[in-house]
Amino acid sequence: MRMTVQTDYALRVLMQLAVTGEQRTIDEIAQAYGISRNHVMKVVQRLATLGLVHSQRGRNGGLRLARPADEINVGALVRQMEDTSQFVECFDSGTNHCVVTPACGLKHALSGAVEQFLVHLDRFTVADLVRKPVDFGQLLGEENLAL
Results as ranks from 00 to 15, higher is better:
Leu121Val: 10
Gly75Ala: 14
Gly141Asn: 10
Asp135Pro: 02
Val43Trp: 01
Ala18Phe: 06
Asn73His: 13
Asn96Lys: 10
Gly112Lys: 15
Asn96Leu: 06
Ile26Arg: 02
Arg131Leu: 15
Ser93Lys: 08
Asn144Ile: 11
Thr49Met: 14
Val130Ala: 13
Leu139Asp: 13
Gln138Leu: 14
Val99Gly: 07
Gln138Met: 14
Arg24Gln: 15
Thr49His: 11
Asp122Lys: 13
Arg12Trp: 08
Leu147Val: 15
Val53Glu: 00
Asp135Ser: 03
Ser93Asp: 13
Ile29Phe: 06
Leu118Arg: 14
Val53Tyr: 00
His120Val: 08
Arg46His: 08
Asp70Met: 04
Leu106Asp: 10
Glu71Trp: 13
Glu28Leu: 06
Ala109Arg: 15
Leu50Glu: 01
Met3Leu: 15
Asn73Trp: 15
Asp83Leu: 06
Val119Glu: 12
His54Ile: 09
Ala146Val: 04
Ser36Glu: 04
Gly112Asp: 15
Gln86Leu: 10
Arg123Glu: 12
Val44Asn: 01
Gln31Gly: 04
Ala127Ile: 02
His120Asn: 12
Ile26Phe: 00
Arg59Trp: 15
Leu14His: 03
Ser111Ile: 09
Leu147Asp: 06
Val130Arg: 11
Val53Gly: 05
Thr25His: 04
Ser85Lys: 07
Thr101Tyr: 13
Gly112Cys: 14
Leu110Asn: 00
Gly105Phe: 08
His54Glu: 12
Arg12Phe: 00
Leu118Tyr: 13
Gly34Asp: 10
Asn144Pro: 00
Leu17Met: 09
Gly137Ser: 06
Thr101Phe: 08
Arg79Phe: 02
Arg2Met: 08
Met81Lys: 00
Ala146Cys: 06
Gly94Met: 05
Gln138Gly: 10
Ala66Val: 01
Leu14Asp: 04
Arg79Asn: 04
Ala113Ser: 09
Arg59Glu: 12
Thr101Ser: 07
Leu139Thr: 10
Ile29Asp: 00
Leu52Lys: 05
Leu65Thr: 01
Thr7Leu: 08
Val126His: 06
Val126Gly: 01
Glu115Trp: 05
Ala32Asn: 02
Arg123Phe: 14
Val43Ile: 07
Arg2Phe: 05
Leu17Val: 06
Asn96Met: 11
Ser111Met: 13
Thr49Glu: 15
Thr101Leu: 08
Ala48Gly: 02
Arg24Lys: 11
Glu71Gly: 00
Thr7Tyr: 04
Gln6His: 11
Gln56Trp: 02
His120Ala: 10
Ala32Asp: 11
Arg67Asn: 13
